[in-house]
Design a protein around this nucleic acid. Structure first.
Length: 730
DNA sequence: AGCACGCCGACT
DNA sequence: GTCGGCGTGCTC
């Protein structure tokens, strides 16, 4: 009897056994539909076996959905590894790795290009369309204007078109057709600019590693031309008949980057990210798996997409935190990319101007080869960086005099400025000046932020909203004061101070609508604004060639945080925004406001010495026994009941300690503590840190420990999860 | 996660 | 007298 061991989309850390036909059993990677309790689920065969520990009369039969494995061997190994490494239920891992259409059981090859055209009677239908049917009329005009219209185009610029199309179709006015799946051919190949010697050396090292393992850090400041190195290596990879996978941070996956790849490469470039429609993702996935696409460029979930002939993996901006999924299946796409490259026996290139502490440590240990691009390709000079001591300098509206003067100078010269403030809204605190009452979120341990445009108080942690009270709800009288400044207040103040300046704010509030971010960045890049105000949304990705001044309003939030990674993220962020300044031929200037101008990390920033910063950071981490010199896993628990999470974690710790002791595993389990923000969205959160010097010991303990906790009755009364290699400790 | 079973409060 | 609250148990 042949048994298929199936990963099912349920939160259970195990596989389920099913009978399959003896004659032609499925290969691992085949999708199956199975009865599960009273439900019917779609899962992925992870293993085959001859026998099962489950009684024969309880075994049910799986129905095979694929003749060929939907997930080929190498991609399946990645899923197995990911499930084991992150101690996450294999079914949920498989689920995360498949586009929706495949999770729903649709065939691997997606339906062809869906398009619509007017029928003969449809062309004469105008008179029969009442004026009230405005959407139908618009869609009809759209159809009349072209021979036929592709569904994807309608998805993009006619939201909600399907029901409207159904109406036209019901009257026999349109015809729907499906072409065979075809991938759009790439544009003509533009000739590549000549590489400078450093770029050439870097690209050659990568190319020499083709066909074998190789791990590279491509270290180069903004503007040093990392993308040219990728393009050169990828073109060579394609020339050898292999595909390339390119991972980029969430925000960076803009049409510009994709356009640049498409313009330069002779084979189709497929795109995979969460902003696409389900159909588009299905198509991109299939094109990568079949080999039709030469390059797949995507955000973190693209790391799971199978490739027919893998040749190279690139992770751009490898330090970017968006590569780590922060809920549910908490994987790190960069780390999985490195594993994947090893199993596929291909090189991987991690690129960054501000490499992560993990990658730097791997370079120091000789596990990664460091490739450096020391100079800016265009020859522009580095921006001058200076600190503004907020203890001495008066700051009107939160901006010190020298920064205001510098802004005024830029306005006079017709150059752009960028003000970076990682805080949305008008003011983060609403305070009664009489009784010192503060507006707090009823469901979180947090203050409410006042948003001027919406005229509402909002919680940035749970999304709760309320009206701004007229008087103090506590003492009835009093004057309510806005304390502190967010981007909205900064915008108001700067508009007031520089009435003739065009001020453009770019944060999640102004860029919420689809395409709004693109639109605003486009305005910024084309010089349609004099002063840009933004959060980290603005810090990433985009070239803003006319910006010659960058102001960092507050550098101190990250310097004294409870989170040991805050300094690393702060410095990376400041360098990333600074990289926006002074490109092309205009020298740039960066001003950083701080209450701690003596901080050595800030001194490294002023000196443009990321290596010195890295040495300092790694020395501190080593001394403190923190990653990358230790390996962390965080056990989190949350519950609507106040003590429940902590109670569970205390029990978990004694169980874990007993296991570690009896098996001689060197893992420290710390005291369970409330999360830094204990209550969030009405739930109490607690956490327990596990730390080990040796990674395999951490995993040995986690496997045994979590297995026990799965059976623990207390564990059923709270919601708990593990986070391996946590990036943020709250 | 679903989904069912199983005992205790406010309602047609 | 029922409808329904969510505790507990199970899914090959």
């Amino acid at each position: 009897m042949t048994i298929a061991r199936v990963a099912l989309p349920v939160p259970l850390r195990r596989l389920f056994d099913y009978r399959v036909p003896d004659g032609h059993p499925p290969r691992p990677g085949v999708r199956v539909r199975v009865p599960f309790g009273r439900r019917s689920l779609i899962g992925v065969v992870f293993e085959l076996a001859e026998t099962s520990a489950i009684a024969a009369d309880k075994l049910k039969t799986a129905q095979l959905l694929d003749a060929e494995p939907a997930i080929p061997d190498s991609a399946l190994s990645l899923l197995r590894f990911a499930a084991a490494y992150y101690h996450h239920p294999p079914g949920e891992v498989a689920h995360a790795a498949l586009p929706e259409a495949l999770r729903a059981g649709r065939p691997v090859e997606p339906a062809g290009l869906e398009s619509f055209m007017l029928t003969r009677s449809g062309r004469d239908a105008e008179a029969q369309l009442p004026d009230r049917a405005r959407s139908q009329k618009r869609l009809w005009e759209r159809l009349r204007a072209a021979e036929s219209v592709v569904a994807e185009e309608l998805d993009a610029d006619f939201p909600g078109w399907r029901p409207v199309m159904a109406r036209l179709n019901a009257r026999g006015w349109v015809r729907r057709t499906e072409h065979q799946p075809r991938f759009p051919a790439a544009a003509e190949v533009a000739s590549a600019p000549a590489l400078n010697p450093d770029q050439r050396r870097a690209a050659e090292r990568v190319v020499q590693a083709f066909g074998a393992r190789g791990r590279f850090l491509l270290y180069g400041i903004t503007g040093s031309g990392k993308t040219e190195v990728y393009l050169h290596a990828i073109a060579e990879c394609l020339a050898r008949g292999r595909q390339a996978l390119v991972l980029v941070p969430e925000i960076a996956l803009t049409p510009q980057i994709v356009a640049r790849f498409r313009a330069r490469l002779s084979l189709p470039v497929a795109v995979f990210h969460s902003g696409l429609s389900a159909r588009e993702r299905h198509r991109a996935w299939s094109a990568a798996r079949s080999g039709d696409a030469g390059v797949l460029i995507g955000t973190r979930s693209a790391v799971f997409v199978p490739l027919a002939r893998p040749g190279l993996i690139v992770v751009d901006e490898e330090h970017d935190p968006s590569f780590k999924q922060q809920e549910g299946f908490r994987y790190h796409a960069r780390d999985l990319a490195v594993f994947r490259a090893a199993t596929e026996e291909i090189p991987v290139v991690l690129g960054s101007a501000t490499p992560s502490s993990e990658t730097l440590a791997n370079v120091a240990r000789g596990r990664y080869t460091r490739l450096e691009l020391p100079a800016r390709a265009a020859g522009a000079s580095l921006p001058r960086v200076q600190l503004l001591d907020l203890r001495r300098l008066p700051a009107a509206d939160g901006i010190a005099r020298p920064l205001l003067d510098a802004l005024a100078a830029r306005l006079e010269r017709g150059e752009q400025s960028l003000i970076f403030l990682n805080r949305r809204g008008y003011s983060p605190v609403l305070l009664c000046s009489d009784c010192l009452w503060q507006a707090r979120c009823p469901r979180c341990d947090a203050r409410l932020t006042f948003h001027l445009q919406a005229a509402r108080l909002r919680c940035h942690h749970c999304g709760a909203e309320s009206a701004r009270p007229e008087q103090c709800p506590n003492c009835g009288g009093g004057k309510l004061a806005d304390v502190g400044a967010g981007t909205e207040r900064l915008e108001t103040a700067l508009r007031h101070r520089f009435p003739s300046a065009r001020v453009l704010r770019i944060d999640r509030d102004t860029a919420r609508a689809p395409g709004a971010l693109e639109h605003r960045l486009g305005i910024a890049a084309q010089g349609g604004a004099d002063i840009l105000i933004g959060t980290q949304l603005l810090a990433k990705g985009h070239d803003l060639p006319n910006v010659t001044l960058v102001g960092v309003v507050n550098a101190d939030q990250g310097l004294y945080s409870v989170d040991y990674r805050a300094v690393e993220h702060l410095v990376q962020q400041i360098i990333q925004v600074s990289g926006r300044a002074g490109r092309a031929d205009k020298p740039g200037e960066v001003m950083i406001q701080t209450l701690a101008p003596d901080n050595p990390y800030l001194a490294d920033l002023v000196a443009h010495d990321y290596d010195a910063f890295a040495r300092r950071l790694l020395a501190e981490r080593r001394a403190a026994g923190y990653p990358p010199f230790a390996h962390f896993a965080l056990l989190r628990a949350e519950s609507a009941r106040e003590r429940a999470g902590l109670d569970f974690l205390r029990q978990a710790r004694s169980l874990g300690r007993a296991l570690a002791q009896s098996r001689g595993i060197g893992v420290s389990l710390f005291d369970p503590v409330p999360a830094p923000m204990e209550r969030r969205a009405g739930r109490y959160r607690a956490q327990l840190l596990a730390s080990a010097e040796r990674r395999n010991e951490l995993h040995e303990l986690l496997t045994a420990w979590l297995g026990r906790l799965d059976d623990e009755p207390l564990g059923r009364t709270v919601r708990w999860s593990v986070d391996v290699d946590p990036l943020e400790m709250y």
